[in-house]
């Protein structure tokens, strides 16, 4: 077993173990912390795939910002162990579990059907990752090449920027619009009503 493989197993255990512990820990704060561990593990896996940019975004956005807010809220509300008592919550979490298992199955099916070929590539680590990634998503590479652009899909920041602002312009705009709507909603909800007293 070579170095990167060892690292892969280490970080995979870290992210999976973190996830499991998150689900099973009694205390919300511990759960949040284990989730951070898991996220950082996933980020490290991205690093092993040479996708530094993704890894850093993962840490920056999820571990650095979102989870801080989570912790913030857990601490402010002072949720003790065993928060989910109401049966409604139980029901909801059951539904959520079902949905996620379903999604996982779909993902696995898709992966096993769609990506038979690159299995031999993963064996020798990731010496040439642009090759590997291009293998997984051949259409993108073909399209960028067909558009007359020399940029192939690679883990570099430039490729991400290009992809976002050229190929995925519409989804980006939609996501931005969604976020804007959410922001406006938050501002309206959190604003004290000026018309009535004590609103």
């Amino acid at each position: 077993m070579s170095g990167p493989d060892l690292l892969f197993y280490f970080f995979a255990t870290l992210s999976l173990g973190g996830g499991l512990l998150m689900v099973f820990s009694r205390h919300p704060v511990s759960a949040a912390l284990f989730m951070i561990v898991s996220l950082v593990g996933v980020a490290s896996l991205f690093v092993l795939l040479d996708a530094f940019f993704l890894a850093i975004l993962q840490v920056l956005v999820y571990a650095g910002a979102v989870m801080v807010l989570f912790l913030f809220i857990i601490m402010l509300l002072d949720v003790g162990p065993g928060g989910a008592k109401a049966s409604r919550l139980k029901f909801l979490s059951g539904v959520a579990g079902l949905i996620s298992v379903g999604l996982l199955v779909i993902l696995l099916l898709d992966l096993s059907l769609g990506a038979m070929e690159p299995s031999d590539c993963s064996a020798d680590g990731c010496e040439d990752c642009s090759e590997t990634s291009a293998f997984a998503w051949p259409e993108i590479r073909e399209e960028t090449a067909a558009n007359g652009n020399s940029l192939v899909f690679s883990p570099s920041v430039k490729a991400f920027g290009f992809g976002l602002l050229a190929k995925y312009m519409l989804p980006l705009q939609v996501a931005g619009f969604l976020l804007l709507a959410a922001m406006v909603g938050v501002i309206i909800l959190s604003r004290k009503s000026t018309g009535e007293e004590g609103g």
Binding site: F52, L57, V59, L60, A63, G64, V157
Partner: peptide, 19 residues
């Protein structure tokens, strides 16, 4: 290649110590 983002990412983890 993304050094500055790395700095941002890691220093954003620094808040956990304080929290």
């Amino acid at each position: 290649e993304v050094g500055i983002l790395f700095i941002f990412a890691v220093s954003s983890l620094g808040v956990y110590g304080i929290v």
